[in-house]
């Protein structure tokens, strides 16, 4: 079995290599395949994200009832909670693709993790800012150093540190390996963020949706929350695909398939 599968080769599997997962894995490892797949699906995901986001925010602001204690200020949940979830899942994707890159030496995989970092940082920033704006009227303070808020801030520093390390190393291969190790080390923060509200006492409340006894939220509030969550996932896919395409064009600028795209 071949170990390096970059460049535009033809994707017909050899008879000994018919396991479908292996074929799928190797196709995604091919830069040109990934580039064309991303060009096809990125814009579609983006348009769907826009439609769902408008629907979800409309439902959240005008259809969902006010909260029995917080009145209307709780409505920031429709942005805050999906951003916070995305900040965690984007990091997991970044770390997993870094691990795949390290183990299988897959260039596309490193491109994916490099593309994840700024998007994840943006989601983290958004979660911190919206949470802070909600915290002032609800708790009485913009910021408190409790376990949940602090670990989420550490996540922002991890993303920023990843980007800084990436920019600090001129050689692309060295940078990819160094940032991949950083992403793996930072992975330990993800369960800490998620379980911080259970392991320690914090000002931040516990999970509303992922609970043993089911979500403790009115269904009319939960539906727009889930819609904006799907919308943010699709938005992420769309932006990620665009960024990966740029990374791939830069990485493979000397190959035939990129020249063909550039020259039309």
């Amino acid at each position: 079995m071949t170990s390096h599968y970059t460049g535009s080769k033809n994707h017909t599997p050899t008879p000994g290599q018919t396991r479908s997962f292996r074929i799928w894995f190797h196709r995604f490892g091919s830069s040109s395949y990934f580039y064309h797949m991303a060009s096809r699906w990125g814009p579609r995901a983006g348009w769907l994200a826009l439609i769902l986001m408008v629907t979800g925010v409309y439902m959240g602001l005008f259809v969902a009832p006010p909260d029995y204690q917080m009145g209307d200020s709780y409505r920031i949940i429709f942005i805050h909670v999906p951003s916070a979830w995305m900040s965690l899942s984007v990091y997991v994707l970044m770390a997993v693709s870094s691990a795949i890159g390290l183990i299988w030496k897959m260039k596309v995989s490193f491109c994916v993790s490099r593309a994840c970092a700024p998007i994840g940082a943006a989601f983290t920033f958004c979660a911190l800012v919206t949470g802070s704006l909600w915290g002032k009227p609800t708790w009485g303070t913009y910021w408190i150093w409790d376990a949940r808020l602090t670990s989420e801030l550490v996540l922002l520093f991890l993303y920023v540190g990843y980007m800084a390390l990436d920019k600090a190393i001129p050689d692309r291969n060295t940078a990819s390996r160094a940032t991949a190790v950083l992403a793996l080390v930072g992975l330990v923060n993800i369960p800490i963020i998620h379980y911080s509200v259970e392991w320690w006492n914090t000002l931040h409340q516990g999970s509303t949706v992922f609970r043993m006894d089911g979500p403790s939220i009115d269904a009319r509030m939960l539906v727009p929350l889930l819609i904006t969550t799907v919308a943010m996932n699709l938005y992420f896919v769309s932006v990620l695909f665009n960024r990966v395409r740029c990374e791939l064009l830069d990485l493979e600028r000397r190959t035939q398939w990129v020249r063909k795209i550039v020259n039309g």
Binding site: P66, T208, S216
Partner: peptide, 12 residues
């Protein structure tokens, strides 16, 4: 004094 909000979201 800070208020701690719980994880329940309910309509009035």
């Amino acid at each position: 004094v800070l208020a701690k909000h719980d994880e329940t979201y309910m309509a009035p």
